[in-house]
Design a protein around this nucleic acid. Structure first.
Lengths: 232, 232
DNA sequence: TGTACATCAGTGAACGCGCGTTCACTGATGTAC
DNA sequence: TGTACATCAGTGAACGCGCGTTCACTGATGTAC
């Protein structure tokens, strides 16, 4: 009977999800290298060997968590972007910035797993790539649309783009169609600046120095918008 | 005899240093969470318990590595800065950027230890703070001197600095005396942008996208210089 | 609808490993008279 | 200068722990006739 077959499969899918959830909770407490299959099994109330019915190894579990994490950031960024009128490109940028930071503050260990030091001994498979690009796609769309709308007015001339940058610019341009090389360069700077700021805040570099972090962050990202040529 | 006393003390100091060196080498291979006192002892050819004569715990060893790491970056940044004429503030900024990136590429795991996700279960003591600020001090001096020399000409007006930023700006200003709040804000952006870029490059976010990394980095930091108002 | 068989989930014991840290000890090095 | 004593470095065994992964197994669930 096909309905009972899907019943078994549904249970399986649910348990798989539950294991990932438990693992994510442990990740949130102990960090990536503290994640262990045995601890997950313990919390699930099952034998450690049983987990292997669902994930063939610890690394596979980790890969799942990474993909889920990228998707979670991606979703947060997508809905933050969608909540702003499409023509308000500066507002969309700011919304995306706050979405990234808010998610990072809410899930620090998960953020560290995605954007921090790589887990020793673990090499991410290519499966993570599409999920990893989800937030970047949104960002690219904002820049691309702003450019097409003629809404980018950077305050000054950048140094001339070196010709050898062309190849990299072309690859990045797949995410922001129609945008010239100098805008690509500026966009990269703003994007890495966003994650650099969030990383500094999260990993302790701002301790005892920057205290009113929401204010500083918001202002910094508004400055970035200005530099990008977006009006806010 | 005081000379023999210092002889013993010299041996002790040397062994302490050697243990740290071995640990640093292992850190470079396995990353921070792969560092173990037992493995260090093994490579030193001594009993694992003997290491406790030199470092009271694994965390103390880690603290030493962190402090040494910050000092190494600091030194690299200091000498890069010193190699450029003091009046060439833009050149000094670029030199500092490359010093940070070069050091990071040469010591990726150590960089991750300093600027990446914190090691789970380890809390850095306050002893690391002065070393951690060494590179920042150099940066602050460049900005401060450029400002005093009237060499900062940012290309456009930033959004107005929110009044609640004043406290944080004052704290940062201890590292860059005499600099107004808006310059402080821009400086923070460029600084976090530098580390954000290096982090992206080191932790794999640029894989398959940015390939000619030296070119892209150099150009990006030159753009940052322009945004800061430095001439290059 | 009922029965024989195949598939799958979960168990529990085991393998082999490495870790941080403690502790009583042996020798060697330094100190005081 | 020589001897008795104190300090220190280093040993090796042990404690107690947790880990990833394998494997032969028991039952339960699903399938085919």
């Amino acid at each position: 009977m096909s309905s009972s077959r899907t019943a078994r499969e549904r249970v399986r899918a649910e348990l798989t999800r539950e294991i990932a959830d438990v693992a994510r909770r442990q990740l949130a407490v102990d960090g990536a290298s503290g994640l262990s299959l045995r601890a997950v099994a313990r919390e699930m109330g099952m034998a450690s060997s049983a987990v292997y019915r669902y994930f063939p190894s610890r690394d596979d579990l980790l890969t799942t968590l990474i993909i889920d994490g990228y998707n979670a950031v991606g979703e947060a960024v997508e809905s933050a972007d969608a909540a702003v009128p499409p023509g308000d490109h500066g507002g969309r940028w700011i919304a995306v910035c706050h979405a990234v930071r808010d998610w990072a503050l809410a899930h620090p260990h998960e953020y560290a797993l995605l954007y921090g030091s790589p887990v020793p001994g673990y090499r991410a498979p290519q499966d993570t790539v599409p999920a990893a690009l989800r937030d970047t796609v949104v960002y690219g769309r904002i820049i691309s649309e702003a450019h097409r709308a003629g809404a980018l007015h950077p305050p000054g001339a950048d140094p001339p783009v070196p010709p050898s940058f062309a190849g990299d610019a072309a690859r990045v341009r797949e995410l922001m169609p129609g945008v010239p090389d100098d805008v690509v360069a500026r966009s990269l700077i703003a994007w890495t600046g966003l994650f650099g700021w969030v990383g500094f805040e999260l990993f302790g570099q701002f301790d005892n120095v920057i205290l009113d972090r929401a204010t500083a962050f918001d202002h910094a990202m508004r400055c970035q918008a200005r530099t990008l040529g977006l009006s806010i």
